[in-house]
Design a protein around this nucleic acid. Structure first.
Lengths: 345, 345
DNA sequence: CTGAAAGCGCTTACAG
DNA sequence: CTGAAAGCGCTTACAG
């Protein structure tokens, strides 16, 4: 198949490339109706598709949005259903705007900068970037950026996230209401200023309001990617601490089923012997038994808003940075039981 | 931030753009060591990144691989963990080769062609395309294409898939071995020549080998995207047919938990009262209780092989089309029980 | 309404 | 080892 160019179309139509270009770009006011029709027909016949590299070069713009996924070298970020769902929506919405999406997995802020500056990328949505990385990215960048679930002190940051602190608080308050006082925290490392840190802070502050302090021994750390075996073993160990803790707040629903399995191995059953509250209200939370009590967030909305903000900035470059915080709420299901000793019913 | 170009670097280094270009492209044999070093330093200092649109135009090549996801208008394809996992691996592997990934969601073969011809895309990996669409794509295309999980009579088709027929057979055989004779089939519509059709065919042929015919009433059709409510209701209906069927083969693990829930609503419990075998051996299969007996496939491998084939064809354009079929196997867990009446133990 | 010219930032022969 | 010229396919002023 020979590549058809503007020039070919122009020759066949007996007009200049300019005229064809005008037709392609919908500037019909500059072309006679007769010519426009004829050219359109020829374009159709030849199945002509403009060479976007050439257009991009000429306009120094590209219609490309880069979607940047932060991840560790051996981690398949999309195995995380939260990330996958988010990405699916973002791709769809970007495409709906007539833009193209390039997806980059990055392991550092250097990777980010490279991704951002190669294809005249017009903007980017970044997922999972940390505090310190964001600083570096901002210092060298010139296209609109929208972060998802990032925290940063950078003044001019566009971000859409959820109220992670409140999520932690709700979890703690609920468990306390149910009579629990010896509560564990389970989640990935508290790197920098991330979502986990905020969930942790909210959780601890609510404990504190009730005169409870989190025993560092009861802060369980898991890897960022869900590793079933490791979590099951952690569950087994938690079961041995059963006299010390009666409940746990877990920062992701994905972790919970394995934890429950590990606990069960040592005859600790949820919710009868041990209560757990998860986070995300993901699909899994209604698939397992007991169904998970969890902190719900609206992932679709988060993705949609991120794209909306990005295009707002693309369309009017002087529009201000926007930082949106979506609400979270507790969804009560079956994985938390009231303590008999301190029943409040 | 001003864009730095080859010319800027050349001016500062006091050489021609050609020389700088040679350095950037690693053709050091054509540049004096002294110059190379100096140029490298200047490039570094200015954080120069080549404009890939320009390069793409000049070389009529792009280093872009298009990943094409077939989906319905309102479907978030990446909510399907199988697709998401696959995409994650593909993106990673393509990136490891120094290429860029563009992700396109398409709803027809026209969309595919447009995606393929805009950015001088060098090749594509296509997920979820149907028979008839493939014909159309091939007729107008000129870059290497690798399909995943597609079936087609097209001669020169590169595809990596799994042995879906065998999957269906294994499921049927296992249920029969366990004494079941009245077995239902649950899955998305049997569109054209797709994976579901093959699982169905393998399933039916094994039934037939055992003198069993699938009653059309026992062929349950679900939507392509998992709709919990609809599936739960289907489970309720199946429960009412409990005298007619004792087991079901379900073409995706994702569907099973909802089905189980629906059945339970009408007091039919898995595996005690009803047996189910799933497909994929996805994460979920070990998270639910009972853990799912299922047909296992290796998604990571499938993704890796697809990328390997693609690059083989990119690197030597005359290399033949490859069609790989990965094996599947039955993973025995807890969702199938032996029929008492026909015990074979 | 239409077109000739110049240019986007790079690479590809080719000549020195 | 080095560079001047032409070209990739498009768009942007500008002139008619």
């Amino acid at each position: 198949m020979i590549v058809v160019t503007l020039k070919d179309i122009a020759r066949e139509a007996g007009v200049s490339v300019m005229t064809v270009s005008n037709v392609i770009n919908g500037k019909f006011s500059r072309v006679s109706e007769e010519n426009a029709k004829r050219i359109l027909k020829i374009i159709e016949e030849h199945n002509y598709v403009p060479n976007l590299s050439a257009r991009s070069l000429a306009k120094s713009t590209s219609k490309i949005i880069s979607i940047i996924l932060r991840g560790e070298p051996d981690e398949n970020t999309l195995r995380n259903p939260h990330h996958a769902t988010l990405l699916g929506i973002v791709i769809q919405k970007v495409q709906d705007q007539g833009y193209y999406t390039m997806v980059n997995k990055v392991e550092s802020h250097e990777d980010v900068l490279r991704s951002l500056r190669t294809w005249n990328v017009e903007g980017a949505i970044l997922l999972g970037m940390f505090d310190d990385e964001i600083e570096n990215i901002y210092s060298i960048n010139d296209v609109p950026l929208v972060f998802i679930d990032s925290y940063s002190d950078a003044r001019q940051l566009s971000n859409v996230g959820i109220d992670d602190d409140k999520g932690g608080q709700l979890a703690a308050r609920y468990l306390i209401e149910k009579g629990h006082r010896k509560i564990a925290f389970v989640g990935p490392p508290l790197r920098g200023n991330g979502v986990v840190k905020h969930r942790f802070d909210g959780f601890c502050s609510e404990l504190k309001n009730n005169g409870i302090a989190l025993n560092p021994r009861h802060h369980f750390v898991v890897k960022s990617d869900v590793q079933p075996e490791a979590i099951i073993q952690m569950g087994e160990r938690m079961a041995c601490l059963h006299d010390e803790i009666t409940a746990a707040f877990v920062t992701s629903d994905q972790i919970v089923p394995y934890l429950i399995r590990g606990l069960a191995k040592n005859d600790i059953f949820v919710p009868k012997d041990f209560s757990i509250i998860g986070f995300d209200n993901s699909t899994i939370s209604t698939l397992v038994i007991p169904q998970l009590t969890t902190i719900a967030q609206d992932i679709d909305k988060k993705a949609e808003l991120a794209v909306e903000i990005l295009f707002r900035q693309l369309n009017s470059p002087d529009s201000p940075a926007e930082s949106l915080v979506l609400d979270v709420e507790l969804v009560e299901r079956e994985s938390v039981a009231a303590m008999r000793a301190c029943s409040d019913s």
